[in-house]
Write a protein that binds this DNA or RNA. Structure first.
Lengths: 182, 182
DNA sequence: TCCGACTGAATGAATAGCCATTCAGCAAAC
DNA sequence: GTTTGCTGAATGGCTATTCATTCAGTCGGA
């Protein structure tokens, strides 16, 4: 899976051959099929593994925090730290995942929806506490934050310059919180 | 090209056969090659045509406006109106364009960079005029706004519900301006 | 007006190459 | 001897691209 991530990140899912993945993993072509039912399933596995891990780890950590603003900051930080720590994985998530409506819909329905839901909950909590403006639609707000972070990640993988991704979380939050605070 | 957009939007670039495009266009397979050098070039043409048109049309219109906030609003509105007016085109832009690092890099280097530059200029103008906070990095701010709009568009194409995309521009701007205003 | 020669756009069957997937068999471990 | 894990060559299907052929339309001459 590590190998597949690397290969897909380098050449893109459709341009990668199963044989490439096998070679990268140091096994024979056929061996790949002992672990995955098909090429498509390899990609799907990468998503599933990582999204479920990330969301549950995040949710757990949030339980310890009180301030909704701080919670959002933590979410943002996590988001960018996770992607920033593994460029190949980031490429697969930012690029390959978006590559076909098919995968996109799947991901959108599963992982992303949950993630946006998480942000939304936190935001609504903050609205209830009077920290965030009441007039805003929580769902839309969640998308705005996600979109901003997502764009940071996408730019990061495309950039030739090597910079740290995680610190951008604070800068984004700074703008974002300014816009949503009561 | 209309036909290709439709086909790519339906099945994705890699899953579409040149024969599908030909059928949709009502011509024979070979005829496609009288107009495009290769399958890849069809996709490229769709991008090029549309980005150059959009950016130049936008830039022109902005010249008539004074207030930087209003300029940003106009940009956002244009962005979502354009995509909202043509779902197939939107799918190709939001999904297929992101599908491979190859296309992505190309687009990123050309169209997107110019677009982000445009937003940045307007923002810096606003900073100089004291309308926007000085401390913010214009480049990052531009990405935040773009990312938020982009996410609106992506969600819109994936959603089963049919709603108007363009009005979201104002809601996004509302949050965004709150965050960046002096 | 009619005819034959010509043009080049359009066709779609044939080619050529690619690659996911399978499976008969091999080797080490027990 | 049997099980387990792996191998990698062979298969089969698929599809981008090509190109010999068709044919509708144009034009100059009779």
């Amino acid at each position: 899976m590590r190998a597949a991530t690397k290969v897909f990140a380098r050449s893109g899912y459709f341009n990668s051959k199963v044989a490439d993945v096998a070679r990268e993993a140091g096994v024979a072509d056929g061996t790949v099929y002992l672990y995955f039912k098909s090429k498509e399933e390899i990609l799907r596995s990468i998503f599933e593994r990582n999204t479920s891990e990330a969301v549950s780890a995040g949710r757990e950590e949030l339980a310890k925090i009180e301030d909704p603003r701080e919670k959002l900051r933590r979410i943002a930080r996590h988001h960018l730290e996770r992607l920033g720590a593994d460029r190949d994985l980031a490429v697969v998530f930012q690029v390959e995942l978006r590559g076909t409506t098919k995968f996109m819909e799947e991901f959108s329905a599963a992982g992303l929806a949950e993630y946006l839901g998480l942000i939304r909950e936190v935001f609504e909590e903050g609205q209830a506490a009077g920290v965030f403006r009441r007039g805003l639609k929580a769902k839309l707000v969640a998308k705005v934050l996600f979109g901003a972070l997502d764009e940071m990640a996408t730019n990061w993988i495309l950039s030739k310059r090597r910079y740290k991704l995680a610190p951008l979380a604070d800068e984004v939050l700074d703008i974002f919180l300014g816009g949503v605070s009561a």
